[in-house]
């Protein structure tokens, strides 16, 4: 018999107490926030920084969000590789600006999929955390045959999943929950 998945509830405004206490100044619970470090000294691949802001329907930044990412290593493999690379990162939106940031490496292509990073977003007012994906602006050719981007995402909305390069090895990926630039979210 098939049972039912537990119903989701919002993380509420205080998710950082449980998931990233150090990020909000509570340094007396866990020595380090899980997901705060994604790569080690010997991790293969191009070191990159990704940052962004999540905005609500009025354009206001979400300053209480929790963002997680999951990605392949430089060779397109998932899972820890023994070099300190975890593939999984977690960041708290800044309490004033709403900016979140990851220091990671550029993933390799996974099977036929162009290099991409899976995003998972939780915050007050979000009843069920949202899944989306970030692709890189320099991978246009691979993206043309990406089974998700080219196979499922309508052409006019594809740009919502492509980060902007703001400097060498720096990417900006802003997420819009509503409005004309609403980001594509997946039921996957």
């Amino acid at each position: 018999m098939k049972l039912h998945e537990t119903a989701s509830q919002t993380v509420g405004p205080y998710v950082h107490i449980g998931c990233m206490p150090n990020a909000i100044g509570l340094h007396d619970v866990y020595p380090e926030d899980l997901g705060a470090r994604m790569r080690g000294e010997s991790t293969e691949g191009q070191k990159i920084t990704i940052e962004g802001i999540i905005r609500d329907g009025a354009g206001a930044p979400l300053t209480d969000a929790l963002v997680e990412i999951w990605q392949a290593d430089a060779r397109g493999r998932y899972g820890a590789d023994g070099s300190g690379f975890t593939g999984w990162g977690r960041a708290a939106a800044d309490a004033q600006s709403g900016v979140w940031r990851f220091e990671t490496i550029k993933p390799g292509a996974v099977e036929a999929m162009a290099p991409h990073i899976t995003f998972w977003i939780a915050a007050r007012g979000i009843n069920m955390a949202l899944h989306t994906r970030m692709y890189f602006p320099e991978d246009e050719t691979l993206q043309a045959s990406d089974p998700v981007l080219a196979g499922f995402v309508p052409a006019p909305r594809r740009n919502t999943l492509i980060a902007q390069k703001t400097a060498d090895f720096m990417y900006q990926f802003n997420i819009h929950l509503q409005g004309s630039e609403e980001t594509v979210f997946f039921d996957v």
Partner: peptide, 17 residues
């Protein structure tokens, strides 16, 4: 103000999920 207005895009999961 925090609910996406467009339906989620359904797709089969991939190795990434």
């Amino acid at each position: 103000l925090r609910s996406p207005k467009l339906p989620k895009l359904s797709m089969p999961s991939t190795p990434s999920e």
